[in-house]
């Protein structure tokens, strides 16, 4: 019995992981209509996988080799490097003379307001490797953290639940 449940849990996990073949999925999914054990197994698999995913290490640790292979190979990488060079050139040659005499510590903020300038500056400051994916991620970011995602729904029972008809204990399920 327990072994059956374990097999079902694995099947449900593979289902939610998107690892069933189309044939396996086509065979498994109809069970979800009325097989309570399968329904609960899917629910459990989602809950468990979400908890595991929440404990994922930072992306750098999880996939250490991803960044270095991509940076020189993608057009956006070259565009980003070009943009960095342009900003450097502006800073070095076009600044007023008085600014050139200022100490580097007084110029820690990017002059422009555009996201690309800010990204260039941040990357130059941190001396991190700069990938095309980073640039895309940066440009895809919302303007403020408040825009990023809706807050999770409140766990309270909503009031509309109680706008119900007359209760009955002896009814028959459809």
């Amino acid at each position: 019995m327990s072994e059956e449940r374990d097999e079902l849990d694995l099947l449900a996990f593979r289902y939610v992981a998107g690892e069933l073949t189309p044939a396996e999925a086509a065979a498994f999914e109809p069970r979800l209509a009325d097989d309570q054990a399968a329904q609960v197994a899917v629910s459990r698999a989602v809950g468990l996988s979400q908890r595991l995913a929440s404990a994922a290490p930072p992306a750098d640790q999880a996939a250490p080799a991803r960044k270095s292979a991509l940076v020189w190979a993608q057009p956006l990488g070259w565009m980003a490097i070009g943009a960095a060079s342009a900003v450097l050139a502006v800073n070095l040659f076009w600044r007023p003379a008085a600014d050139r005499n200022a100490s580097p510590a007084t110029n820690v903020q990017p002059a422009g307001g555009s996201p690309v300038d800010a990204l260039v500056w941040a990357r130059l400051q941190s001396e991190q490797e700069w990938t095309a994916a980073d640039l895309e991620d940066w440009l895809d970011q919302p303007e403020s953290p408040d825009d990023s995602e809706e807050p999770p729904p409140a766990p309270e029972v909503p009031s509309w639940v109680f706008a119900t008809k007359r209760p009955s204990k002896g009814g028959v399920n459809p």
Partner: peptide, 29 residues
């Protein structure tokens, strides 16, 4: 009777909300 019914409904909602949400997420991604 109505209060009892509402309490039962609320309990069912609380108990099944998360399992159902996970189940639906499993099917819909």
């Amino acid at each position: 009777e109505l209060a009892e019914s509402n309490a039962a409904l609320a309990e069912l909602f609380r108990e099944q909300r998360l399992p159902l949400q996970q189940f639906l997420l499993g099917m819909l991604r």
